[in-house]
Design a protein around this nucleic acid. Structure first.
Lengths: 114, 114
DNA sequence: TCCGAATGTTTCGCATTCGTAATGATTCTA
DNA sequence: TAGAATCATTACGAATGCGAAACATTCGGA
C-alpha cells in the first residue's frame, strides 16, 4: 500500500462514500475509532485506558461502549483482578463488520494506486 | 484476517486516533464525506446532486453545508444559470485542512506497509 | 401569463452526543 | 477497619443531527 497524499484522500473518499451508500450503522468518529482500537491493539482495554489513549472523556467512552454493545460489536466484562475495572472484549459480529470494512479499504487502495 | 486488509484497518485506526488527538473540528461522517467529495470530484456540486451521490437527504446536505460553511471549508454560490440551484465552492481553508489530512494518511500508509 | 415542477431551506419532533459534576462500587492504605 | 483514592456510570443541561413535511423561490411549458 504505497500511495501519495492525493491518492490517500481519494481512498478515504471512496470508502466513506461507499459506507454511506451501504447504509452501515452510522457510528461517530469516536465510536468507530474506539472499535478499531479495541480490535487492532492487543492489550487489555479499560474505560480509563481508552479515554487516555483516544483523548476522550470517560463518559464518552462509556457511551460509545453502550452503542457498540447494542450492536453487539463489543462486550463488557468486569475484571476479576480488580472489580472496579471493566475489560472490553471483542465479538464475532464486530470482527465481521471490521473485516468487511477492511476489505473495502483494501479494494479501494488497489483501485486508487492501480 | 487477511494481512493486507488488516494493514488497511491499521491505517484507518492510526489516522483516526491521530485526528482525535489533534482536536480537529469533529465532523460527522456525512460532513467529512461531503467535504472530500466536493474537493476531489471536479464537477458542479449542487445540494440535490450531493444528496443523490452521497445517499443523504437534502436537509442533511443543507445542514452539512451550514456546518462546513461555518468553518469556512466551503462556500455557497447561487447558480446564475438557474437561480434555484446553489453551487458549492472550495475555499483555501478547506484545501489546507484536507491537504494536512491527506499527508497524515500518506504518512501512516508508509508506516503501516513499511 | 399561469400553473406545475424543481430546488434549497426551514420547521418540527425526536434521538443522540457532549463534558462536567455527582454517584456507586471497589480497592488501597494508614 | 475507617477513610481516601480509583474506576465506571449516571444525571444533567446544552448542543447537534436526523428525516418528513411544509415553505419560498425560481424555472419552464402550455
Amino acid at each position: 500500500m504505497d500511495i501519495a497524499a492525493k491518492q490517500a484522500l481519494e481512498l478515504w473518499r471512496g470508502v466513506m462514500v461507499l459506507a454511506l451508500q451501504k447504509d452501515l450503522p452510522d457510528l461517530t468518529s469516536r465510536q468507530f475509532t474506539l472499535l478499531l482500537h479495541v480490535y487492532l491493539k492487543d492489550q487489555a482495554h479499560t474505560v480509563r485506558g481508552l479515554a487516555e489513549e483516544l483523548n476522550m472523556s470517560k463518559p464518552a467512552v462509556t457511551r460509545a461502549l453502550d452503542r457498540l454493545g447494542g450492536l453487539d460489536f463489543v462486550r463488557r466484562k468486569t475484571d476479576d483482578k480488580d472489580r472496579r475495572s471493566i475489560l472490553v472484549q471483542r465479538t464475532v459480529k464486530g470482527s465481521v463488520f471490521l473485516r468487511e470494512f477492511g476489505d473495502m479499504v483494501e479494494i479501494y487502495a488497489a483501485e486508487v494506486s492501480g
